[in-house]
Simulated assay, not measured.
Amino acid sequence: MKGAKNPHEQAREDVLQELFRHASPRKRPPSGGEREIRESLHAQWSAMTQRRKMKRRSLFAAAASVAVAAIAATVILESPEVPVPGTPVAEVLLTRGHASISPRDGSPGNRLSAGDGLATGGEVKTAPGGGLALRWHSGITLRLDQESHARLLSPTRAELLAGRIYVDTSDGPTAELSFKTPAGPVRHEGTRYMVGVISGTTSLSVREGRVLLGEDGASAGEQLIVSATGEQRREAIEPYGEQWAWTEHLVTPIETDGRTVAELLAWAGMETGRSVEYASNEARRLAEQAVMHGDIGREPKNVLKLIMETTDLKAEISDGVIVVAVGASP
């Protein structure tokens, strides 16, 4: 029948009822003791609440500190960068025509010569027909074209205000120098490239490697152009040719004495943005065995000319290739 209990459940209920019948009511604590217990509990609750408030205040203060730091960082990043003068950052390797350095306050500049040191806070300028090659303290080499204007901001940062600058990072760390431009910062990743600022338009031409311009970037064979109004376009570009020709007049001097012809050919190819190809195994063998003596010049094309005049090798430039052969130009 529904609701009926089995004998075992009935027996347990009988035992419990018997126990409850003999149990006496629990005594209440004295009124004073009860008040003390309540006061003790209230004190514990108050202390716990106070700790929670203090924790919330600490968290709020920490969050506020982070917010203030972020705002301060934003203000610093967005504020005009003021160079701290006096820190040596570069050495002049060679000059062409007139090149000078002057304080930022616009006072007259001093003409630069090979061996001069440059420090932060200075502004470097080249005159029409002039040019300048520098070695940054990290080993990176820089070349400034004629009518260029650059500001030395810090040991890891410079600003190109006008003109063109060529960067070669082969002898220095890849992350030791960035450039401020109207279109944003330029940061490289191990490369050779050129940056230009002409009438507010910024151009980035990459011969080798990859370079970032602001949030965008370009790789070898690409040119990124950003107008003064922010309009952007990307074009294909050869690593050799007329727009790179000015860099060959400011090549860092190379020690030619004791080098093989093959080494000098590879150097000439790198400086002109061309590859070197041998027309035969015999031409390669002769280039690797022939050793040059004395100073045979600085500019790559002059070096090629002297190699042809003093060895049995002939070289011909064909677009992006230097073709080397035995006896006569191919």
Rank of each mutant, 00 (worst) to 15 (best):
G86F: 06
D216N: 14
M270I: 05
E39P: 10
A315N: 03
A158T: 12
V66H: 00
T120P: 02
S24D: 14
R96C: 07
A183T: 06
A162V: 03
L153W: 00
L153K: 01
K5G: 14
G130A: 00
R233P: 03
E39M: 03
R274V: 03
A220D: 05
A245E: 01
H22W: 13
A245L: 03
T247E: 06
S154V: 10
Q232Y: 09
I76A: 15
K314R: 15
D319E: 09
T174D: 15
E123F: 07
Y278A: 06
H249R: 10
M194C: 09
I101K: 15
R52D: 02
A175Y: 10
E36H: 11
E81H: 13
L93A: 08
A90H: 02
L204G: 03
E316Y: 13
P29V: 09
K53P: 10
E159S: 12
V226I: 14
E309A: 05
A290M: 09
L177A: 00
A328N: 13
E123T: 04
R96P: 08
G172E: 15
W244D: 01
A218G: 03
V303L: 09
T202I: 06
E91M: 01
M1D: 15
R192P: 09
G32H: 09
I37M: 15
N302V: 08
S148F: 01
A43E: 09
A315G: 03
V89E: 04
S100W: 15
A61G: 00
S40E: 02
R111Y: 13
V261T: 01
E271T: 05
A43L: 11
G129R: 04
